[in-house]
Design a protein around this nucleic acid. Sequence first.
DNA 1: CTGAAAGCGCTAACAC
DNA 2: GTGTTAGCGCTTTCAG
Lengths: 331, 331
Amino acid sequence: MERRPTIMDVAAAAGVSVATVSKAVNGRYGVAPQTVDRVLAVVADLGYESSLIASSMRSRTTGVIGVLVADFEPFSAEILKGVGQALRDSRYDLLAYSGSHGAAEGWERRSLSRLSGTLIDGAIMVTPTVVNVGTEVPVVAIDPHTGPADRPTVECDSFGGAIQATRHLIQLGHSRIGFIAGRTDLRSSIARDAGYRRALTDAGLHVDPALIGSGSYRQDAVRVAALEMLSRVDRPTAVFAANDISALEIMKVAAELGLRVPQDLSIIGFDDVPEASAANPPLSTVRQPMQTLGAEAARLLVSLMQGETPAATHLTLPTRLVPRATTAPPA
Amino acid sequence: MERRPTIMDVAAAAGVSVATVSKAVNGRYGVAPQTVDRVLAVVADLGYESSLIASSMRSRTTGVIGVLVADFEPFSAEILKGVGQALRDSRYDLLAYSGSHGAAEGWERRSLSRLSGTLIDGAIMVTPTVVNVGTEVPVVAIDPHTGPADRPTVECDSFGGAIQATRHLIQLGHSRIGFIAGRTDLRSSIARDAGYRRALTDAGLHVDPALIGSGSYRQDAVRVAALEMLSRVDRPTAVFAANDISALEIMKVAAELGLRVPQDLSIIGFDDVPEASAANPPLSTVRQPMQTLGAEAARLLVSLMQGETPAATHLTLPTRLVPRATTAPPA
DNA sequence: CTGAAAGCGCTAACAC
DNA sequence: GTGTTAGCGCTTTCAG
């Protein structure tokens, strides 16, 4: 709990001015070699470390990349691993930030505002809630918001993935297939909804509005929608959830209702977060390459930060069906 | 890429001084209600958001908790989820930081120095490489370094867990059991080593130095140690790795050597990171409650930050054996 | 109730 | 080569 040494302490101890210390520490020109040595010796001795914050207020660049998330949940954690991997051998520090008001719309505007222009040189926003955020630094969005895509984005093929999931259920013999939708402000959610409908239509199946519930990716909303859907006399024999967290919640509801999975009800999710394979029984899902998403976003951002003009600023990565133990033919 | 509005812009637009804006925004006493209204209207209009960095330079407190990690890998990602969960309903923002020199010893001192005293009000260090770091803010360490434990710590019962793992192999009928050790500077690693030896001794088994390799939790080192150990004519029939990442690497080496797991070689890890259950075949391991570790660390830290004196500042959480598909009786 | 001024730790011009 | 000076955007005394 002792006071951290400042540049003034170093200057005083080395008998030079703060400016000289700054130059010596940052390897600027115009300092005598022996002065540099003396200063660095004092720095080592005192354990001085320049304050990232103070430096960032003066210099326009910090070498720090920010990842802005609403919350550290499974999805964003995977993204983070990918970003970290891509940046591992770079000179960039990585800073992940989650405001305390993650639930409120516009959290990313607030976070970005508070960090950019000073602390971070560029940012990656994960599942943002708004489209336009004026910034002073390059930003790339992962799993972007609906609306005009003026900002660089990285996402997976949600439409194709939803078709894979729904078709998987159809091929197992299901014809009454429910859908629990996600956050309707996310492009990916809308695409998953569309994919579900398309697969149904392509198979000559009727799209029954009663079998479409809104979950918004929120556990409580999913619970309500699932309870309602699964309590119907003409309940579906299979459900596709717009993400794994929702699917996992549906599994809980099914258990409470006395429905066995997959015998009485097939369930398939989307994402393949680690929790999906660890579930009991392991959750069938559509895998989106979350770590790759993060890594690609990082690469795109670095290229943007270096003033390059990347060939593609809207990446869409493929998904893959991962059938596990929660999907089976209907009874 | 537009310039972010500063407090000066707000002041100018509202026709007041920056001091008044600051007071109005922060709800300080001594501002006329109508002035507050006017200022806040301008704030909303301009989309002003105070700079976290600039504020933190003047005020001693920011409401931000920092989690310092060497790297965003599976273990620290789980910790992060737990910290996030514990802080979800608090007023604290969460900032996770990984310096670009994560590999170098002392990364946490550097990170802490650069962030503390200004940006963060408290910190959680994950698997630190050094013991003493002078700081101005409360710090709690997860999976601490060896040496005098003067700082609050949260860890799992590594000794007991290692005994569980080794005993599991012994009970399956193994008598030649190898061990790939972890980072020798971590208290937990040493405890796992000791637990391995104790279980062996308790069972009347000989501790063969040739069956103990050093992996340091680094893939390349694990590979070298595993290759050497598994190429011996008197190779072990089972191996206990000090963490899952090491165990996963051993699985790869075993495959390259043509050894079938678990028929020719049983492997058990430690941690139960998500990757363990997703492995093929799923990895047997000892589960440490990583998210709980993070959550407890967060609770401890918050209590420290509020000036309380927690009853216990050294938490040890229990582990649990999770037998999966990589352990079986020897051929 | 409001504003002017000082300064947090640091860097970048510019003098000396 | 080195020191002096002026801020970065904000909060906080302290006068008015």
